[in-house]
Simulated assay, not measured.
Amino acid sequence: MKALLCKQYGLPESLVLEEVPTPSISKKQVLISVKACGVNFPDTLIIQGKYQFKPAFPFSPGGELAGVVKAVGEEVSHLNIGDSVFAMPGWGGFAEEIAVDASRVFRMPAGMDYSVAASFMYTYGTSYHALKNRAQLQAGETLLVLGAAGGVGLAAVNLGKIMGAKVIVAASSDEKLALCKAYGADECINYQTQDLREALKNLPESNGVDVVYDPVGGAFTEPALRSLNWKGRHLVVGFAAGQIPSIALNLALLKGCSIMGIFWGAFVEKEPKANFQNIQELFDFYQRGILKPHIQKTYNLSEAPQALHDLTQRRAMGKLVIVP
């Protein structure tokens, strides 16, 4: 089988496509024939040694995938050969086949496309955990989404509208804002051509912001936090801008606001029952046709380094997907 391997830390062009043996499985694993693998921001970090987890060399990036079960370990009871599944192995998905712990593998809902299944959990799982469990977003509140056309950002826009919020989106181009508008955004700010803080002040019927969803960091975090209402919640999701901002904590004091960290992977491990409930609710939204993952482009394995480049250069809108 073919796999895109990271043999030393570096940028996407350092990855190599090679023929490797089909992985063997343990008693508690399944072997999956990969049909699609989502491209996520952690993939760009893990190949540079900048992520929380550092797998042994050589490894493949790709933490979120969908495919068909080819073999089942003898202690696995909830999955069968031939099942269409999605899996969250953390890494290893940029390959034609992968061995995954069965606890990280779930049957796909009927009728779901493999590319959609491989684009679902990281973005929507993160955003739903952030908005539901952490911010406790309420209908009628105002949600500001930074980096709103990216994977997690667009998921937050989609979910914010499902949850009944007024959604303000901020992104770096009019093309990205048009996509957000198609997902129900109420107000749009181009923060490449507008000052974020002033634009938020000057929105029609502006009543401030109750929740900020921030996967960007950098220079946009402080003006967004300054726009929060009393008892607002600022959700720290990531740092796509490449800079971790420093915040004067007197802002939190003066506004009575909360700055909340969002680490969905830890939530999955520490609160599996709550995560499972979230997954069931997300599946229900999908089957009702109100949750709609946006896939901008698919790539084959040899093109996967370009997909990672497109993500790091912030050219992606919605999700990018590798189809081996």
Rank of each mutant, 00 (worst) to 15 (best):
C6A: 05
C6G: 00
K7R: 11
K7I: 01
K7E: 04
K7G: 01
Q8K: 12
Q8V: 05
Y9N: 06
Y9D: 04
Y9K: 05
Y9G: 03
G10K: 02
G10E: 00
G10I: 00
G10H: 02
G10V: 03
G10L: 03
L11A: 14
L11T: 12
P12Q: 06
P12I: 04
P12W: 04
P12N: 06
E13S: 13
E13G: 06
E13H: 11
E13T: 06
E13V: 05
S14R: 04
S14E: 05
S14W: 02
L15I: 04
L15D: 00
L15F: 03
L15W: 02
V16R: 01
V16K: 02
V16Q: 02
L17I: 01
L17H: 02
L17T: 01
L17R: 03
L17A: 03
L17W: 01
E18G: 01
E18M: 00
E18Y: 01
E18W: 00
E18L: 01
P21M: 01
P21L: 03
P21R: 02
P21W: 00
T22G: 05
T22Q: 12
T22H: 05
T22I: 07
T22D: 07
T22S: 09
T22V: 09
P23I: 04
P23C: 05
P23V: 04
P23F: 05
S24R: 15
S24H: 15
I25C: 09
I25N: 10
I25R: 11
I25K: 10
I25F: 06
I25D: 08
S26F: 06
S26M: 09
S26T: 15
K27L: 13
K27R: 15
K28N: 15
K28Y: 14
K28V: 14
K28Q: 15
K28C: 11
Q29W: 07
Q29K: 10
Q29M: 09
V30E: 08
V30N: 08
V30K: 08
V30R: 08
V30D: 07
V30M: 07
V30T: 08
L31N: 13
L31P: 15
I32R: 07
I32T: 06
I32S: 06
S33N: 15
S33T: 11
S33M: 08
S33C: 08
S33K: 15
V34H: 11
V34L: 10
V34S: 09
K35I: 08
K35W: 07
K35H: 13
K35L: 09
K35R: 15
K35Y: 07
K35D: 07
A36K: 14
A36M: 13
A36W: 13
G38W: 11
G38D: 13
G38L: 12
G38T: 13
V39E: 11
V39A: 11
V39P: 08
V39G: 09
V39W: 09
N40W: 10
N40V: 12
N40C: 11
F41N: 10
F41E: 10
F41G: 10
F41V: 10
